[in-house]
Design a protein around this nucleic acid. Sequence first.
RNA 1: GCCGGUGUAGCUCAGUCGGUAGAGCACUCGCCUUGUAAGCGAAAGGUCGCGGGUUCGACUCCCGCCGCCGGCCCCA
Length: 644
Amino acid sequence: MADQVTVTLPDGSQKSIRRGTTIHEFVKSQIGPGLAKAAVVARLNGQEMDLARPLLEDGKLEILTDRNPEALEVIRHDAAHIVASVVQRLFPGTQVTIGPAIEDGFYYDFAKETPFTPEDLERIEAEANKEIQKDLPFVREEVSADEAIALFEKLGEKYKVEIVKDIVARGAKTLTLYRHGDWVDFCLGPHGPSTGKVGVIKLLSSSGAYWRGDSRNAMLQRIYGTAFFDKKALNEYLKRLEEAKKRDHRRLGKELELFQFHPAAPGAAFWLPRGTAIYTVLSNWMRKLTAENGYQEVKTPLMFSKLLWEQSGHWGKYKENMFLVWDSEGNEHNFSLKPMNCPSHHLMYGFKKRSYRDLPLRFSTFDPLHRNEATGSLGGLTRVRQFSQDDAHIYAMESQITEEAKRFVQLLDRVYNAVGLKYAVKFSTRPVQRLGSDEMWDRAEAALKGALDALGLQAEHKPGEGAFYGPKLDFDVSDSIGRKWQLGTFQVDYLAPSPDRFDLTYVGEDNAEHRPVVIHRAIYGSFERFIAILIEHFAGAFPVWLAPVQATIVTVADRHLDYARAMRDRLRARGFRVELDERNMTLNARIREAQIHKIPFTLVVGDREVADKGVSPRRYGGEDLKFMSAEAFEELLAKEAALP
RNA sequence: GCCGGUGUAGCUCAGUCGGUAGAGCACUCGCCUUGUAAGCGAAAGGUCGCGGGUUCGACUCCCGCCGCCGGCCCCA
């Protein structure tokens, strides 16, 4: 019948109802009032929409409740609207811009002369939660572009007018407004049925944010917040944040005495003995892995003449980020510290005539780099001014890209798996502004895609995000509070070998000169960022092979010290990182100390151990391994200290 | 670089109304000689981030700078 629509529910059952019935009515009458009450938003034929929308055609219907993560996103967007309405009431003259739901919450950007103070946030939060109590319905309204523009012009909302005009220019036909109470916003939706569905709103912070993310634009005032269906879930979230703070690498770096910063060198770490131990283990491990994979380690100068940067193109594009060298009289020299290794590797490639038999040629290096990052962006080890990449450049024939990409990803996967890091792959392809022919981009992208497919690896496609000189793969890992950091990268570069740049060639089988492609790649990304992630990942309790101190010896009484010293020296001679706590404290206090420093093994030695030539090891966390001979412990340690 | 917050002993933090600062832990010393997460006691430790200003007097109020933290931009 023409005036009936057939709705298919997730369990496969079908129900017919009069065309034009709202989803909410349908659920209430055909499924049950319980679900109707719990419903937040619907998904009809895969598209989320308000419960108040009418059913106009046959379709598959899902009802999302507070059990669905998608519904949580919807109420966070509701919360953004509520906060915006409260802000405009409390701060007349403030204009609204955008306010999306984001991972773990939402934000809203306002055009306001003065920033929000912490006290402002408290007031806004209190008022926003009152709006929830009022249980105001969210009402959707379709309007024409002219109506929308007229409305927001009347309200003095210049940013909204701009947004509407933009969306119209992009071809949108129906525009939607959402109202709750007497407040209105231009918004695609969907929203929950009413403000009451938002259980609780918590505002977390405020900050400046550029309009449309462009530093040439006006600075807006952003409020970050989150919302949950109930207070319990909010408290759990806040608790999780607290826990995450305990894993923060800056905090653990200090507590475990791994590294430190000093105002004398902002953005450049002092690696303390224990942090250096980790750094060294990681570099030795990577040396081993790269050597096995046909890389050759090289070292190149730290400082180069401007001539090199002009040739590489950095002088034009990257000068702002480079540290230039001056003398004591204040004269600028034509030198700068290197921010990247590639140009010097390219020079090295060009030192002699290369044959196709030499390719792929892989130069790896751990040289320190310096980049003059904006002061406001520095932070911990994840964003620094001096760092070392586990960098390498592969000079290859174009036909070798897929194979090199495969080998690289396999190696990266092995490294990340060994430390238990989960990673997400991004595949960035040709940007609007790019170099080279479309055919070249077709080949390069197909080569990377081929490698991903061959490995069965899922990657998020990022069209337009490739470098202007070639496509790339990026490998992201999250830190303890969920911020994503790029670590590994694999970038194809067609520009560097060109005659305009380094004019790199090889002699082919045909005895003619050809151009190689260059691949820039890193697995750790930088030691600094990788170690930061590892600290948070392990919460400072490193596996034995990575632990800065693998075992610490504590004696029961002073009379056992000679035995303990001999034990320490023997273990050290075998290459283990072992310490002896000779301090005048009780046994318990020294064990506690070892636990706080998260040392994998604490070796207790007393009369019994001296008499029977052994140790009583305790693992970090408290497991007592009981007495074992010195040889048995050395064997255990050797096994767990082996590189993965 | 931009917006906001913040800076007190090695660390974590108190410090009222403007009257030149205090705790716990750590460090040092002494006693204790310990069997699996803090033994007891004593002493010592500060240009209150730096530089100006206001004031009889500034950790405290004002201005500038620097560092750090949360964001924006950018990025390994």
